[in-house]
């Protein structure tokens, strides 16, 4: 075999199609199937945004942040603050306030992520047990601070008027907001891939995933790279939190802890550290959640656990595991 020729591994990428093909006959009606599938793609895009940072930080830093869910909630609450002051009415103002909410969530979460990384994570690099414990502690503190600041009742976070309503194609109705979320999720996915493949910081991240020591020996400060990536991961969680909050029309302090379970399933299925795997895993989890939610609502989460079991039995390190370390 000539060097450089690497057969692309396409089989995992086909799994969402397989899942959809299996579910279709059980669902029966085509409009329902299409609606569910579009809803899944949107939910998958949001799950991807929420999970991507976690998997990125794990791949590079070997740190699994059990407080990642708390950043999702922080992002959603940051958006409620922006929406309190934002004007609304026209399409332009709605779009502007949406962008402002995303930006605010990213900035706030990035900043909280900076403090969190320096204070909690930096002292326990390389020690998984302590990492799990201390990030659980961190998630409790952030969640309780949200409760203290914003009260115990969920806050309203309805999508602006421009994103409400649905587009109707014959018998098929597609909610506008779902398309917005899907578009943004795909955009962020493409951006992440571009950053990883085309920029020096992306090269450093990919190199650091393989060999942190050699990156340092080439003259780069790996600890600063860690902090930067952790901030980016937190900001992504915050952006995901805004998207999810608007989807659910509310911000709740406990929302992150609930989502963390799905996020974990996503990154385990995708392969810890892999951005593409994360995107696929998020889509799969969302498809199962929606199809099962329609066919057997009570078993939706259990079905996703079974999906995780099935994927891991097939590929013990997930769909797209990172290259050998």
């Amino acid at each position: 075999m000539t060097p450089g020729a690497r057969r692309p591994d396409l089989l995992p990428a086909l799994t969402p199609l397989i899942v959809a093909a299996i579910a279709a006959p059980f669902i029966g009606s085509l409009p329902t199937f299409v609606t569910l599938t579009v809803a899944s793609l949107a939910m998958g895009a949001m799950l991807f945004v929420m999970a991507s940072g976690l998997t990125l930080a794990f791949g590079l830093m070997d740190v699994l942040n059990f407080g990642h869910g708390a950043f999702i909630a922080v992002g959603a609450f940051a958006a409620t603050v922006v929406y309190q002051f934002a004007p609304h009415g026209s399409l332009a103002t709605d779009l502007a306030s949406f962008v402002a909410a995303l930006a605010a969530a990213a900035v706030v979460c990035g900043f909280v992520g900076y403090v969190y990384e320096r204070l909690l994570i930096a002292p326990v690099y390389g020690r998984h047990l302590e990492q799990i414990l201390i990030t659980i502690g961190g998630s409790i503190v952030i969640e309780q601070l949200l409760l203290a600041l914003f009260g115990t009742e969920p806050l309203d976070l309805s999508p602006p008027a421009a994103f409400r309503g649905a587009l109707v194609f014959g018998q098929i109705a597609v909610e506008k907001y779902r398309l917005v979320a899907l578009g943004l999720g795909v955009l962020l996915y493409v951006l992440l891939l571009l950053v990883l493949s085309r920029t020096r910081i992306g090269l450093l991240i990919r190199a650091g995933v393989e060999n942190r020591e050699m990156v340092e020996a080439l003259g780069y400060r790996i600890d600063r790279l860690f902090t930067a990536v952790f901030m980016a991961a937190s900001a992504l969680a915050g952006v995901g939190g805004v998207l999810w909050g608007l989807y659910q029309s509310q911000a709740r302090a406990g929302m992150g802890a609930d989502l963390l379970v799905l996020v974990f399933i996503v990154i385990i299925i995708g392969g810890l550290g892999s951005v593409t795997g994360c995107f696929l895993g998020a889509t799969l989890v969302a498809l199962i959640a929606n199809y099962a939610g329609f066919l057997a609502p009570k078993l939706a989460l259990v079905c996703n656990i079974l999906l995780m079991v099935a994927v891991l039995l097939w590929r013990p390190r997930g769909l797209y595991p990172l290259g050998a370390k």
Binding site: I140, V141, L145, A148
Partner: peptide
Amino acid sequence: PNLLHPDRWLLWLGVLFILAVR
């Protein structure tokens, strides 16, 4: 007062927990 509300007892527990781990 919000931070010291009895229902926020977990906040202080969380801080104590982090300090204990560290």
